[in-house]
Amino acid sequence: MTTTTPTRSTGLGRVLIAVYGLLALAATGRSVFQILDDFDQAPVAYALSALAAVVYIVATVALIVPGDTWYRVAWITIGFEFVGVIVVGLLSIFDPVLFPAKTVWSMFGRGYGFVPLVLPVLGMVWLYLRRPRAATSTPASASPGTTSPGTTAA
């Protein structure tokens, strides 16, 4: 049995892709600047900014490219992003010493208008609504109410 994956790049999907692409650019630029400028001051925070950039890049590509494999990649990256935002958000509140500098995910993405907190939730809902469905195929000769040769109707 084959599966069909509805396209993820229509309607709300286009908005999600645009926002993920924008965050990918912002997080990449921020992390490159932070790492080149003063990595030694907050290596954990700046490495997390770089990781967030990679996650946003992969999520953007996974939302654009059709197919079951990229659908799974989208789930993995967006799920990872959600866990990252929650964990880093909590740590940045309860152990601020770990994050002497801001990251994309610190304080649940407060520096980005909390978009990093809301975006993966919207992304997971969108992916669920666009999940692959089993392709239904019935033989051309079979129609409702008929039986195939060699079978009996119940």
Rank of each mutant, 00 (worst) to 15 (best):
F80C: 03
F80V: 11
V73Q: 06
A50H: 02
V85F: 04
S92R: 04
A101C: 03
V61N: 08
V118I: 13
E81S: 15
L51N: 04
P120W: 00
M107P: 13
I64G: 05
G123W: 00
L63M: 14
V65Q: 01
V54F: 03
L98T: 05
M124W: 08
G111P: 09
L90A: 08
L127N: 05
R133K: 10
V61Q: 06
G123S: 11
F99W: 02
L90K: 09
L129E: 13
W75M: 06
G123P: 05
G111I: 07
R133V: 11
P116F: 03
A53C: 09
L51C: 05
V58P: 13
V58N: 05
W75K: 09
G79P: 03
P116E: 01
D95H: 14
Y46D: 08
V54D: 13
G123N: 03
V61I: 12
Y71L: 03
P100H: 03
P120L: 00
I78T: 01
W70M: 06
V85L: 05
T103D: 01
G67H: 05
V125N: 08
G109C: 04
L127C: 09
L98K: 00
G109N: 08
S92V: 15
V115N: 02
L48R: 03
D68V: 15
S106W: 07
V125F: 08
Y112H: 13
W105Q: 06
Y56W: 08
R110Q: 13
S49T: 04
V87W: 06
L48Q: 04
I57Q: 11
